[in-house]
């Protein structure tokens, strides 16, 4: 199964590409809006700043390309900041609109625990993305997260509950790093690749 991995300069694309290949995908790394708009399966990675990532998408016309692809029936997986980009809005340093493909907003962790969260966290999950995941512990690096999103399919707790994954029809997002989450992460990628 071919997966188009969006080649964002604000993402660790090589690691995700390798994990997708290990999970059985044929990976095309691209930042071409036409190729993205025509893709069947898209992965949108991202690390660091939501604002920088969103800016790169809009400046290169990739935001429209992603929306077009989803409209045509492509499935999409957002990873980490890529997951946050799927939402309506992020409150990282002011308010920045996201792609609006899933409902909800992204907020900074408000609890008393140190931010960013760096490390493994237990996730309570259901739905096809998590089929066969025996041990729902995934690796997170984040200061921001969606909280109680309407399309939530997985939840974790870091000084308060947050949304660890979402699904709205063909659009998926995971706040954790599947490419750093060992067997559980590879299983999630395999499920995304196999999902029709």
């Amino acid at each position: 199964m071919k997966v188009s991995l969006i080649d964002s300069p604000v993402a660790n694309v090589a690691n995700i590409a390798r994990a997708l290949r290990t999970a059985g995908a044929e990976v095309e790394i691209t930042s071409d809006p036409i190729a993205i708009a025509n893709a069947q399966k898209l992965v949108l990675p991202g690390v660091g700043s939501f604002i920088a990532a969103m800016q790169w998408l809009t400046e290169n016309g990739i935001d429209h390309a992603i929306r077009d692809a989803v409209k045509r029936g492509a499935s999409l997986l957002g990873v980490c900041v890529g997951h946050q980009l799927l939402f309506d809005l992020s409150h990282e340093m002011g308010s920045t609109p996201g792609l609006g493909l899933v409902k909800g907003e992204v907020h900074k962790f408000g609890g008393i625990l140190p931010v960013p969260q760096i490390g493994w966290n237990r996730v309570a999950a259901n739905g096809p993305l998590f089929d066969g995941v025996e041990n729902g512990v995934f690796y997170f690096v984040n200061s921001y997260a969606a909280m109680n999103a309407p399309d939530e399919i997985a939840r974790a707790d870091y000084g308060g509950p947050f949304t660890a994954a979402v699904q709205r029809e063909r659009v998926f997002g995971v706040q954790f790093h599947p490419e750093k989450s060992s067997a559980a992460g590879l299983r999630v990628l395999r499920n995304f690749i196999a999902w029709m």
Partner: peptide, 17 residues
């Protein structure tokens, strides 16, 4: 006190490595 209570509340979610 508040920090201690917050840590206790998440103690089983966050595995030690």
């Amino acid at each position: 006190l508040a920090e201690a209570k917050a840590r206790v509340a998440t103690t089983n979610a966050i595995p030690e490595r």
